[in-house]
Design a protein around this nucleic acid. Structure first.
Lengths: 172, 172
DNA sequence: CACGACAGTTGTGAAATAGAACCCTGGCCG
DNA sequence: CGGCCAGGGTTCTATTTCACAACTGTCGTG
């Protein structure tokens, strides 16, 4: 399977990866949330090759995650800003950062602290249920096909009992 | 910058990407959360080349995201299971899925629904503050260096006022 | 009018990938 | 007891993508 086929799957995860699922797109987005906006600034901070940066920025703009805004005429210069669609990636970025904080920090601790202006505390991002606000873990969730399901390929065995695990151990 | 250098940066985001930041690792993880465990099952569902699958599974095992468990002797066969470190990636996966649900679903709607067993409702994952439980958006958060910071490279201009944006428009 | 800032484009060689084919272990089947 | 099958890989090659360096072009300024 190639990159471009990913976006055609009936799976929100694949479709998202088709847009932001490569190393540089995600690094660019991280910087976007840190108020980085200009080509050279991305280039300097990321240590990325210019052609790749051009390509990724273009893809993100084409997918409406970023938008190009002129910040001056003479010569015309643009900066890249997050759209609402891009801003909505904040939970993804925060979840990734938090996992790194917990599992990949060195002895000295996490490189950054996040401060919640609304409540005034340093905080960790938590995955919560939109209905009951409790923290949600993988064990407390089941999935079933939604209106956009096209087939059962992406459902787990538990939700698709028609395809039981055929193990060839002793029985069967 | 190459892949392997990513993990050395003083940035939780980069370090996380060094472990899970490629297309196939993330797709494998998605399937892990859907109870997929075996080599051939990953292979069939993902449409991935066997050599790449071998490589990615090995990397995930080396990074303690997955662990290899024998499920039978004679011949010995293993399955891949999420470790706690791997299970902790649930918020990342859910955040990605949710973004896809909101922004990449086709007319028919989202392919999967998530049901929270604890409260009994279908739900959306929400990024909440660990301290006040309110939903958190990018505008309500500031960041500052933590104990593991090595330099200011990864801080935004707002948090590193020593490096003001030098724009060369009219003034300056 | 040379120089520097910004924002790219064009090359070229090095690395990663896709896809098919092959290998190994050990049951099971006739 | 020879062949076949399943599971889980490894080897091989052609293609794609990437990294890195150099070059282009527009202005504005000294």
């Amino acid at each position: 399977m190639q990159w471009r086929e990913l976006g055609d799957q009936p799976c929100s995860f694949s479709r998202t990866l088709a847009v932001i699922g490569d190393r540089w797109s995600l690094m660019i987005l991280r910087d976007c949330f840190m108020k980085v906006r200009r080509f050279d600034e991305f280039h300097d901070r990321l240590g990325i090759g210019r052609p790749i940066l051009t390509d990724r920025l273009k893809k993100l703009v084409d997918n409406f995650v970023l938008t190009k805004v002129a910040y001056q005429q003479h010569p015309i210069r643009h900066e890249y800003r997050l759209t609402q669609k891009g801003l909505d990636l904040y939970p993804v970025v925060m979840a990734i950062v938090h996992w790194g904080d917990v599992h990949m920090a060195d002895r000295k601790g996490r490189p950054l602290l996040h401060h919640h202006l609304t409540c005034g505390h340093d905080f960790d991002p938590v995955l919560a249920c939109s209905e009951c606000r409790a923290e949600v873990g993988p064990r407390e969730v089941t999935i079933r096909p939604g209106p956009g399901a096209r087939n059962a390929v992406h459902l787990p065995p538990a939700a698709a009992p028609a395809a039981p695990r055929r193990r060839r151990v002793k029985a069967a």
